[in-house]
Write a protein that binds this DNA or RNA. Structure first.
Length: 427
DNA sequence: TCTGGGGTCCTAGGACCC
DNA sequence: TCTGGGGTCCTAGGACCC
């Protein structure tokens, strides 16, 4: 058994970098990407960070700074970002199959089986090929634990002299790097724990690493104890290769405008149920629970949330059933006097898709179940071949008014040929 | 007027059983 | 009648992540 070596590959300002690949004219301009409804800032170029605009800042509060500095705004284009993300994943998979895709812009690699003599040089080589093949700048951290790899990639990004790569494998400066990282920037220390750690005298990652395991567990539970060990180079969080199977699925949106109309909300719920069920089928699972929730505006007085759920004796991934059940749940909590701001559908308590055959045969009507399976498979095949929403349920079409606004979305360059710019050749 | 969307894990407490 | 302890399952809420 070899000693663990992890690399974290982390895309810099990911959404902004994706936009810049297709807009090289923006390479040195301040650029921000906004969430659904153009509500919050979800990605910032370094220039925007330098202007003091924080992550998740409500866009309307910073409009003046946006205008004054000519910040270029994009509505989030997740189809583009997802596609760019897959390109990087494919590239990394050629290095080693032992990869954990941790998020849309971060992957861990297990390097322990590879024959790498100089980890820093290896990091620079990987960084250059990703830049060459995708146009995206990344930072790379290499260390004996995931938490240290994460911290190292962050240092690689922030310290210009490191040029995007830091290896903490046998690095005599490890303690010094730890001493430069505020405790709140450590992976796993959020806004609640950071003040608590500072009060304990642990203001930096180095101080945190020096806590006794007992004290760490007292203050932060078992995860905290493991985190402290990780900072000392003892790996507690293994590579998660099964990451791709979700344990719950949520689809929700803030509406383009608040609404009291049942038909609008039903159309939204039908649409959420459809995409959630598709994702569920793609993961080869069935749900034993499904639920909905409705919210008023949480930033206005009198904020309220309503929710209902249904438990299935026979788990399902059938879109038709999920739509009719969510609409039914909705009718139990809907009041025409309320003004709704946001709604969502969630699925949970999953079983493997072959569970019905192995465990419930006899308890269900097999013919009926097979027909439902065949129906959903046909829908998925047609939609894959001819485009999303080729086949859909009528409830989705009751209204479009719920759909979020996205006034400044860029073309989906890599997935929608019809949105590509056209070049005219002038003779 | 205008404040996102999607996840995971841990813990404490209650119900229930032996 | 009262007493003890342990195990499991479920749920709600908290905390974190990107």
């Amino acid at each position: 058994m070899k000693n663990p070596v992890f690399a974290l590959i982390d895309c810099n300002n990911f959404f902004v970098s994706c936009e810049r690949v297709f807009r090289p004219d923006l390479a040195t301009k301040p650029v921000a990407v906004l969430s659904s409804n153009d509500g919050c800032v979800v990605a910032r170029s370094n220039e925007v960070k330098a202007l003091g605009i924080p992550m998740a800042a409500p866009a309307f509060k910073y409009r003046e700074i946006f205008d004054r500095h000519g910040i270029v705004k994009f509505s989030a284009n997740f189809e583009l970002y997802g596609n760019m993300s897959r390109r990087i994943t494919e590239l990394l998979t050629t290095i080693t199959p032992r990869i954990e895709v941790y998020s849309v812009d971060e992957s861990f690699l297990d390097l322990s089986q590879l024959d790498i003599r100089d980890h820093t040089a290896w990091g620079h080589k990987v960084r250059e090929s990703i830049l060459q093949w995708t146009g995206l700048p990344v930072s790379i951290g290499i260390a004996p634990s995931k938490s240290l790899a994460k911290l190292a990639s962050d240092r690689g990004k922030k310290v210009p002299a490191l040029d995007g790569v830091l290896s903490l494998m046998g690095n005599p400066e490890t303690d010094w790097h730890l001493s430069q990282v505020p405790v709140g920037d450590v992976w796993g220390i959020g806004w609640r724990l950071a003040p608590k750690m500072r009060a304990e005298g642990a203001g930096t990652a180095l101080h945190l690493a020096q806590l006794s395991p007992q004290r760490a567990q007292q203050l932060m539970g078992i995860r905290g104890r493991q985190l402290v060990a990780e900072l000392n180079g003892i790996s507690c969080f293994p590579l998660d290769l099964e990451h791709q199977k979700p344990k719950s699925i949520l689809r929700s949106r803030t509406f383009g405008e608040d609404t009291s109309l049942a038909s609008v909300i039903e159309a939204a719920l039908a649409s959420f149920a459809t995409t959630a069920a598709f994702r569920l089928r793609r993961s080869s699972q069935l749900a034993r629970r499904a639920g909905i929730f409705l919210d008023t505006n949480k930033h206005k007085p009198g904020f309220r949330r309503w929710s209902r759920e249904v438990i299935y004796q026979v788990p399902t991934a059938d879109t038709g059933q999920l739509i009719s059940d969510t609409i039914n749940l909705f009718s139990q909590i809907y009041s025409p006097r309320m003004s709704y701001h946001r709604a969502g559908v969630w699925l949970g308590d999953f079983r493997p898709a072959d569970y019905l055959q192995t465990d419930l045969l006899g308890a269900i009507d097999p013919a009926k179940h097979d027909r439902a399976q065949a129906r959903m498979q046909a829908v998925d095949v047609l939609n894959e071949r001819f485009g999303k929403r080729t086949i859909r349920y009528a409830t989705e079409d009751l209204a479009q008014k719920w759909q979020p606004r996205h006034h400044t979305r860029s073309p989906r360059y890599t997935t929608r040929p019809d949105e590509l710019p056209t070049a005219k050749i002038v003779p």
